[in-house]
């Protein structure tokens, strides 16, 4: 089951084109989206997460489109936002982890959240506000993973992390089964992707194997 963009484009309220039109079939298990700031990476992720509707065209997946059933998208597509402070909604770690599962209607949400914290004793009632940047990122990722979505969208996953935390995060992501679509301007985040899409001014400038596209991006 892959996500597909069909002539999808996004215009701002003044009618200026922000993204597209893009027609892409996103079927590989690891897809990278690279590009400079403002090229449309985050907008693309928001489209794929049904957090924004295309001005024209559509985003298709799971037997439907975001226009038809966008409110169901969180069942299938999880998002890890760039800024952890924007993503963390609740005061304590356990509430944050359990929330997504409660939204899915799972009765044992809190027990599952406790289980996920087995390797981090004493974390359940920690205030998210007091966590370090790396710890916040861990909570954000874990909260989305617990929802067991089929697709994981990651917006600049390594931003705000030190080298050790970046390595740890990449190792964790490499071990996951679900499809990942990673938007980053750090080529290191994308070197293991099967396919990399290079966006420039809202359009695809190049796409293909990670080594080729990333090299071209770095040379540009």
């Amino acid at each position: 089951m892959s996500l597909t963009l069909e002539n999808a484009q996004v215009d701002d309220p003044q009618g200026r084109r922000i993204l597209g039109p893009l027609s892409l079939q996103l079927s590989e298990s690891r897809i990278g989206v690279v590009g400079n700031n403002g090229c449309g990476k985050s907008t693309l992720l928001r489209l794929l997460a049904a957090l924004q509707m295309p001005s024209q065209g559509c985003v298709r997946g799971f037997g439907t489109t975001t226009q038809e059933q966008g409110e169901q998208w969180p069942r299938w597509v999880g998002v890890v936002f760039q800024n952890t402070d924007h993503q963390l909604l609740f005061p304590t770690v356990i509430e944050e982890l359990a929330f997504g599962m409660k939204q899915l209607g799972w009765p044992d949400a809190e027990a599952r959240a406790q289980q996920a914290l087995a390797e981090r004793p004493g974390w359940a009632y920690r205030r998210v506000h007091e966590l370090s940047g790396g710890e916040k990122k861990w909570v954000c990722l874990r909260a989305v993973l617990l929802m067991q979505t089929q697709v994981l969208l990651l917006d600049e996953p390594s931003s705000g992390l030190d080298q050790g935390q970046r390595r740890q995060l990449r190792a964790e992501l490499a071990g996951l089964e679900q499809q990942q679509i990673i938007a980053s301007h750090d080529p290191q985040d994308l070197q293991h992707c099967e396919r990399v899409i290079w966006l420039e001014q809202g359009r695809v400038r190049a796409e293909g194997a990670a080594s080729e596209v990333l090299e071209a991006y770095l040379d540009a």
């Binding site: 969180p74 998002v79 936002f81 924007h86 909604l89 929330f99 997504g100 939204q103 909260a143």
Partner: peptide, 11 residues
């Protein structure tokens, strides 16, 4: 941004 994050997990 927070409302987007809430929406991403079902609103």
């Amino acid at each position: 941004h927070v409302s987007l994050a809430l929406q991403a997990r079902g609103g």
